[in-house]
């Protein structure tokens, strides 16, 4: 029976089965033709992967398509699977490449969309904000959320991926570095620059900033 576990570090909900074996063992089960193993990997990483991709592309339908494509690629590659790096490294590396390709392919189209509306402009998603909070949400809060989205989106691609993996996924520096194909020290430098940029861009939103929300 599956249960939800909240990661203390990142607040991400992971489906954890008490009887679960490691991801590598599950993947070896998939390789051997055990579909139940694939179902368990899917149950465990479905939500984190869709959320990561959603934060990358800011569109739920696209995020789900890309997440499905990532799982499909894992499934198709099952015969050639050799236990090496962690499963999450592999999965998020696939997802990162898919997201970056999608963004590059549709950059012009997304630019048009961003003028009009993206998913977050239409209101909160399915799970995070409860209906009562949604009703009380003010225009100022929406504007604040949009500024934060925009600040993250304006980061260079690699910095953006690094921040999203670092902030929202329960991954260590070494694993994020492997996903991005760089050294751990390079990752820390990348993250430092990214958060520094965010600090400057989001400074007007700080509580002690005069006229919060007007500075950008």
């Amino acid at each position: 029976m599956a249960e939800l576990q909240l990661s203390a570090a990142t607040g991400v909900l992971y489906n954890l089965d008490p009887m679960a074996t490691t991801d590598v063992e599950l993947m070896l089960g998939v390789k051997a033709g055990d579909e139940a193993c694939f179902e368990r990997l899917l149950a465990k990483y479905r939500t984190p992967l869709v959320s990561f991709l959603y934060r990358m592309v800011r569109n739920q339908a696209t995020a789900e398509d890309l997440a499905q494509e990532a799982f499909l690629r894992v499934f198709r590659a099952r015969k050639d699977y050799v236990p090496g790096a962690k499963f999450t490294t592999w999965l998020f590396r696939i997802a990162t490449n898919l997201a970056l390709n999608s963004l590059r392919d549709s950059r012009r189209h997304l630019r048009d969309l961003s003028v009009d509306q993206t998913d977050e402009d239409q209101g909160p998603g399915l799970d995070v904000i409860d209906p009562a909070a949604e009703i009380e949400e003010t225009l100022v809060e929406r504007e604040r959320a949009k500024r934060i989205w925009d600040a993250v989106e304006a980061l260079p691609e690699k910095q953006r991926v690094a921040v999203l993996l670092h902030k929202y996924q329960d991954l260590g520096y070494d694993e994020i570095a492997r996903i991005l194909g760089c050294s751990e020290s390079a990752l820390k430098s990348l993250l430092f620059r990214a958060y520094e940029t965010l600090r400057v861009r989001l400074a007007p939103l700080a509580p002690d900033a005069t006229g919060a929300g007007k500075g950008k």
């Binding site: 607040g11 869709v50 909160p124 399915l126 959320a145 934060i148 993250v152 921040v163 958060y195």
Partner: peptide
């Protein structure tokens, strides 16, 4: 300031499939 940025990022909502 760093903690402020970290908290700000909490507002990037997650989605359920």
């Amino acid at each position: 300031e760093m903690q402020g940025v970290w908290s700000d990022l909490d507002s990037l909502r997650a989605v359920e499939p």
